[in-house]
Design a protein around this nucleic acid. Structure first.
Lengths: 193, 193
DNA sequence: ATAAAATGTTAGTTATCACTAACTAACAAA
DNA sequence: TTTGTTAGTTAGTGATAACTAACATTTTAT
């Protein structure tokens, strides 16, 4: 029953912080939600910050976009863009708790904000741009600003993700497939020869 | 010098709350930043919540998309989409403080979140879809899911806005014109006959 | 110049928060 | 039986928060 308690605390902390942010959740809140005494929380994680770090560690998902690009793409533009969209959204979904915690404490957790956006997304942008360029070289696509197109494509998906993350009952709720389909269709017919 | 004090407090409160959120800013913080005593703040706005309401009122900008659609559009698809994009981003920019305050206190300010998204954006989606439909009817566009296209278009812009709002130094910083240009170009060549 | 209005100062109340300390209870391995 | 581990309970500390009250000082309008 040792791991169990820690798990219970982490689960409670994750859900509370995802909902309310870091500073709006008290250790007492977490303890009560987990069904544990406050002391137990402090014994497992020395400080409140310690809880946060454990939560972040448990939910930070680092994708291997490079490997994905090397292995999973077929060369068929529509199919590949849909794959990329699904992969990107799945990655963001896994990091959603972190995203929500970070946005609710932007000021206190600037490193987190950086981590969410820059590192991974920029890598993905480059890979996507490279992919598009290779399609151009093969004559499949018309010549264009591949990097700009990659940005537009991924920013759209990011907008979709954020809308769903920030609003529970929204017009984009459960619209992932249609959205991706529509986005890819527009994109493909916009850039194809 | 009467209005001046109130203004100073509101300015300070807006900037602090935009930066740190509502609950992470103390009345003392606001007073110090405004260069006023704490008591003065309470004398102008009875409670801390009162400050927030004043801030929100001062920064809530309600656009008249309907009038805009009736008057400002030319019929030229590229030109019109660029206009719409600029108008939408300008509207979001004006409401940026509210957006940032709301996202940092999602739990405490659910009505605000609703206000940002649903009312205005849904109205705009309908107007845009209607506009696209009229272009289809005129034979300018190929037949398509106008509402879905409107959503994709606006969600992209929303992604652009959010990225800039949440991250100060970002790869999309100062990229408004290129982004809109690229988005509209892709969109137009994707939906044109 | 003087009254009134606005602001400052100081002190205090009540509540909550992160965190500590000291002690106890239950259980299991040695 | 002894000992270690895990958890609960209770009480308390020091800091900070929102907010109030009473009185002093400055600013503004007449």
């Amino acid at each position: 029953m040792k791991k169990d308690t820690k798990e219970k605390i982490l689960t409670a902390a994750t859900s509370l912080m995802t909902e309310k942010g870091y500073s709006n959740v008290s250790v007492k809140d977490i303890a009560n939600t987990a069904g544990v005494s406050e002391m137990t929380v402090f014994r497992h994680f020395e400080t409140k910050m310690g809880i946060l770090h454990a939560v972040l560690q448990a939910h930070s998902y680092i994708p291997y976009f490079e490997r994905f690009f090397a292995q999973e793409l077929s060369g068929n533009l529509t199919h590949d863009l849909q794959q990329i969209a699904h992969t990107y959204l799945a990655y963001m979904e896994k990091n959603k708790p972190i995203f929500l915690i970070a946005t609710q404490d932007r000021n206190r957790l600037p490193e987190l904000m950086e981590a969410i956006s820059n590192t991974q997304t920029q890598q993905l942008q480059k890979l996507l741009a490279t992919y598009l360029q290779s399609q151009i070289n093969q004559g499949t696509l018309k010549d264009m600003d591949t990097y700009g197109q990659a940005i537009v494509f991924l920013t759209s998906l990011f907008g979709f993700f954020v809308t769903n993350a920030l609003w529970d009952n929204h017009f984009l709720k459960d619209q992932k497939e249609p959205f991706i389909h529509q986005l890819v269709a527009t994109f493909v017919s916009g850039v194809s020869i």
